[in-house]
Design a protein around this nucleic acid. Structure first.
Lengths: 327, 327
DNA sequence: TTGTATGCGTTATCAT
DNA sequence: ATGATAACGCATACAA
């Protein structure tokens, strides 16, 4: 580890030109009105001295940090894919990301605190799935995962997903349909509407809030077992929950999908690895990340732009956990 | 979204004191020699105006950004736990983290590029599992996951783990022990040494490099199937690989653990959710993150300090995938 | 106890 | 085409 602090002054001295000339060459390159010789001198000096622009000084001068804050709930492993893809997408534009996590279980305070932490580090914008930040924000807020008026949003159209999953289950001959998840979400409205259109309703609603994954699965299966009659199928909120419930079901001696079918949401790499493979819906993280990067940059470039609402569709992923009851 | 740009000057004006007085009060608070009245005035002004210290300006002035870079391989889901815990640990000290990912499959270039990206954004230090950055670094590099002379390191003592897992398998009556993973790692040396101490060697070595998880599992099982005789047990490099292999084994009609046992490394929340539950080793991420934060801050505070080598032990997690053959 | 002056490294503006 | 200068917001040394 070697410490150096090469500044633009050092480069100027080495190259025998003025400080501002170095900056000019570095910022405008070929397109500027500098002599090729001057440029050559500057480039040589930069290389010889190992000069790197001081990002902090540039940020102070320009008022832009090229740093985007991301605020996410902790505890949800599938977000790893989002994190990786976001970095790839923003990297293309020379933006950097900083993360702050909050506990879903804690009340709003955790989320607010996470936002506040972002604002304290001069980010140019903040991306978050939660939109309950009512205080005035010094920077644009981009919403991921929800559709919120008055914000730029990138989200899976969950209401459409809700309709789609119900139609699919009905077409496979399922009638007694149970759900297990955070039932206030709009996806469950989509499901209920679709069911209603067929003169049906949920066979059972399980809302399981336990923080521990195993416990959530066990609690879900216990609730199901308490019903007079088993449902045909359970729709789980996400793959992690589904997998833990499938494990618990196995322990109860139920066979999946023979005794009961399972369908989930938010494919993870493991969904196809376990047995039975999990029928679920895939979120295109790469596309999501690309959209987030694109809308964020547009917003920064043009703050007055009308709010953008961009939706992604979740694609069904077949799996052995879902039985076709019509055959 | 409301835009404001309250600076220390505004606060000074509002409070009726000088700019430097505001700075002094904010930095030294009670401990400084300012009048309680002055402090009161400053605090009121701060609150009234909604002033936030400009992090960029402070960084420029102090030469410290309070931002730590983290460089990780992408594609590995279990890292989510590390990311969340790191944020929690560093948050306590008012440090922020920025991530850059590189592809394991790509050659060294990807890693170097990721490091370079970090250096371009004025981080105070970089944490990375890879240590092959030979160019001089402008900031301290902290190694996570490996023991490397000449660096501060926080790592699971994998050689000890290697000994431990072999001893455990032997005590359970396993003799034909196969391994599947990146066989150059030191953990496999530990295993081999322990085997050698009992006059044994690996029954088979499977090194499977496929990027796709499912394919890796399938390839592993195919290799196993090609052996004359099944091993007693396979030691997998990590839980993701193990789970995909278990799925593939199931498809081949093998029963786990009756036909073959499985033990893995790096517990994920799902390891206990699947059936059979996976016998594996747990890495204490919270402790790892705490250690990384602590050693990083110490290094920044005291650059001349001798290099710290801090190890964590991986704890065995029982699971039904591992059979006791002695009963 | 408080205020003044200076500089951190950069870049945009304005002269030359 | 190039160089001098100012300013971004803050924190420190020093003076009062």
């Amino acid at each position: 580890m070697i410490k150096k602090n090469v500044t633009i002054n050092d480069v100027a001295k080495y190259a025998g030109v003025s400080r501002s000339m170095v900056s000019y060459v570095l910022c405008h390159g070929e397109r500027g009105s500098s002599t090729p010789e001057t440029r050559e001198k500057v480039y040589n000096a930069v290389k010889a001295l190992g000069y790197r622009v001081n990002h902090t000084a540039r940020s102070l001068r320009s008022g832009k940090t090229r740093n985007i804050g991301v605020v996410l709930p902790s505890l949800q492993m599938y977000l790893y894919e989002l994190i990786v893809e976001l970095e790839k997408s923003f990297r293309k534009y020379d933006y950097t990301l900083t993360y702050n996590f909050f506990e879903r279980s804690s009340n709003l305070d955790g989320f607010i605190a996470a936002m506040e932490r972002q604002f304290q580090t001069n980010v140019d914008a903040v991306i978050t799935p939660s939109f309950e930040y009512t205080a005035p924000s010094p920077v644009p807020i981009i919403i991921w995962g929800n559709k919120v008026p008055g914000f730029d949003c990138v989200f899976v159209d969950k209401e459409t997903y809700g309709h789609d999953v119900i139609r699919r289950l009905l077409s496979l001959g399922h009638r007694k349909i149970a759900v297990c998840g955070r039932l206030t979400e709009v996806r469950y409205k989509g499901m209920r509407d679709e069911l209603a259109a067929h003169g049906l309703d949920f066979y059972a609603r399980l809302s399981t809030q336990n923080a521990d994954l195993q416990q959530r699965g066990i609690a879900a299966i216990r609730e199901i077992a308490a019903l007079k009659e088993l449902p045909d199928v359970i729709i789980f909120h996400d793959d992690e929950l589904a997998l833990s419930a499938v494990g618990a079901a196995f322990d109860s001696g139920w066979k999946i999908p023979d005794d009961i079918s399972v369908v989930s949401y938010g494919r993870t790499p493991l969904s196809g690895a376990v047995r039975p493979t999990l029928a679920t819906y895939d979120i295109d993280w790469k596309r999501t990340a690309d959209m987030l990067a694109s809308v964020t940059l547009k917003r920064l470039e043009n703050p007055g732009m009308p709010f953008q609402q961009m939706s992604v569709t979740a694609e069904f992923v077949p799996g052995n956990s879902l039985k076709n009851k019509t055959v």
